[in-house]
Nucleic acid binder design. Structure first.
Lengths: 185, 185
DNA sequence: CCAGCTGTCTTGACACTGTCAAGTTCGAAT
DNA sequence: ATTCGAACTTGACAGTGTCAAGACAGCTGG
């Protein structure tokens, strides 16, 4: 039924396939040929859309940063609470593990990709807002601290460094940690 | 002069070569054959000592955790101050970027390796001590918070997500961040 | 002194990888 | 109706990890 040529939205299908593959075995084990097979196309089809392997991962990362920004903005608008934004940070890392594992790994990406940079900037702005920092300041210690706390928590958690109790309810655990460590207003 | 067989301490030489290679291009770009060439041996020599690629990276990670524990213990003994331990955490990530990039990436390692587990436990104990947490408690929010803060700061820094001012003097920046965000005693 | 054994390293092979060049197919514009 | 260009395939190449087999060195017991 489907033509061999002109798939329709192969770009989309390849990104989805890549996300699945990354979710299963991590970014370093990703194979372009396996992604192509998963999408039912020839082994060189990905290169046509993304240039090379880093190009495909860059597209995944860009999509990740966009959804990330969405999630952060959404919970900030709904709660206006930093701890909630931090919990959303952690939740995103778990629910979109594949995206997250790629987003902060510049050696796998084309860091000058305009789409990636745009999505990155969105996330950065959302984060800045969520930490209550002055968006004009280039160097805000409160913002760096809040970002570090949420990011470190997320990284350590998805790498399996935290005890079972944390993994069972990560958002609550993060809120407890934030309350116990962060300075008040 | 050098025999082709019985190198002397090939295991050591291979680990060093691997560390150099990782430092240059990251763990995912590591090639066993390139490591072998760097050490001046045949392409299959690494497999004999480490089994496979993950085995070599596991050895690197274990060495990393040992040096990491050393550094943390040293600064805790010298200062007794958490912020100093956190700064040492960050300093280690910078000075031993290659080791650090491998240590927290379980999908690249043999996570059941006894040597790795021993070194990991050493680091964990040193960290626990450095955060002033009860070593018996399995779930200490203060310890998790301090660990997350230092780890997140280190990860974001070496991934290039922080402004230039932070990279210029990372230890001072971390201490400032810790002072501005962490609750007091 | 020397036979055999064990661990160290090499050689050769295999299937798989990313990337490139060339070819094929199809939709659309002219 | 023809040309044109984008989408995708096919085929090739060098490089990869891993495995089996072989070559070598040094020790161990006679």
């Amino acid at each position: 039924m489907t033509d061999r040529y002109h798939h329709g939205d192969l770009r989309r299908a390849l990104i989805d396939a890549a996300v699945e593959a990354v979710a299963e075995a991590g970014p370093s084990a990703l194979s372009l040929r396996a992604v192509a097979k998963r999408a039912g196309v020839s082994h060189a089809a990905p290169a046509h859309h993304f240039g090379d392997k880093a190009g495909l991962l860059t597209a995944v990362a860009a999509e990740g940063f966009d959804r990330f920004a969405d999630a952060l903005e959404r919970t900030w608008d709904a709660t206006g609470d930093f701890a909630a934004v931090g919990a959303a940070y952690v939740r995103f890392a778990i629910d979109h593990k594949a995206h997250f594992e790629v987003m902060f790994r510049p050696e796998l990406l084309h860091t000058d990709d305009p789409d990636l940079n745009r999505a990155e900037a969105r996330s950065r702005a959302a984060l800045h807002r969520g930490t209550g920092a002055d968006p004009e300041a280039v160097f805000n210690v409160r913002a760096l601290g809040a970002w570090s706390l949420a990011h470190g928590f997320a990284e350590l958690l998805i790498a399996g460094n935290f005890p079972q109790g944390v993994a069972d309810n990560p958002e609550a655990a993060f809120k407890a940690v934030a309350a116990a460590t962060l300075l008040g207003e």
